[in-house]
Computed example of a mutant assay.
Amino acid sequence: MAIEKCREYFKEFNMEDRILQFDVSSATVELAAVAVGCEPERIAKTMSFKLDEEPILIVLAGDARIDNSKYKGQFHTKAKMLNQEEVAEFIGHAVGGVCPFGINEGVTVYLDESLKRFTTVFPACGSSNSAIELTIPELERYSNFLEWVDVCKNW
């Protein structure tokens, strides 16, 4: 189970007890905000793309949307999302629980600027009923991100 991968990952840092598990679904931004009890924009959603045939993740604020022209400006290609089967295969978590923790080798993680306006955010933890509250410096550290990008709109 992918949440166990996240639990093992956070065990390295003595943080596995910070993982929140809910009796309700947190598979969408709206559901996660209700489960956590925060504003939807503070949900750190993780989107999966294919870049030059390699999987990448972009973590962005719950109210942000990928801006195709900004994405193309950053990555020099059109945004091409992974389908559900590819997400599970290439990332190691299923849709609804995708996060940058406990992922497969070779997946590059980017953080979007839309997250920087918050003190803490709530990314998923590998399942459709989990999350963890992290500060932005903690998100930077534990996501093993490559760089901050500005590829979103409407926030």
Rank of each mutant, 00 (worst) to 15 (best):
V36A: 13
G37D: 00
C38F: 08
P40T: 12
E41F: 06
E41C: 15
I43T: 09
I43L: 12
A44R: 01
A44C: 13
A44I: 06
K45H: 09
T46Y: 04
M47Q: 08
M47N: 08
S48N: 08
F49V: 11
F49M: 03
F49Y: 09
L51D: 07
L51K: 13
D52I: 06
D52A: 13
E53K: 04
E54C: 13
L57V: 04
I58P: 05
I58F: 04
I58L: 11
I58V: 12
V59I: 13
V59L: 01
L60M: 15
G62P: 01
D63S: 15
R65D: 04
R65I: 13
I66A: 14
I66W: 14
I66N: 08
D67V: 10
N68D: 15
N68H: 11
S69N: 07
K70L: 15
K70I: 03
Y71K: 15
Y71F: 13
K72N: 10
G73R: 02
G73F: 00
Q74F: 04
Q74E: 14
Q74N: 10
T77K: 04
T77W: 02
K78Q: 02
K78S: 09
A79M: 13
K80E: 11
M81Q: 08
L82Y: 05
L82N: 08
N83E: 12
E85I: 14
E85R: 09
E85L: 06
E85C: 03
E85G: 10
E85Q: 12
E86I: 02
V87K: 01
A88V: 07
E89Y: 10
E89M: 10
E89F: 06
I91E: 06
I91V: 08
G92K: 04
H93D: 10
A94R: 05
A94T: 02
V95W: 00
V95C: 09
V95N: 03
G96N: 06
G97R: 04
G97L: 12
G97K: 03
C99Y: 01
P100D: 15
P100W: 03
F101V: 09
F101I: 03
G102D: 00
G102S: 09
I103W: 05
I103S: 15
I103T: 10
I103Y: 05
I103M: 14
I103K: 10
N104T: 08
E105Q: 07
E105V: 03
E105F: 00
E105M: 07
G106M: 02
G106P: 00
G106V: 04
V107N: 14
T108V: 03
T108L: 08
T108K: 10
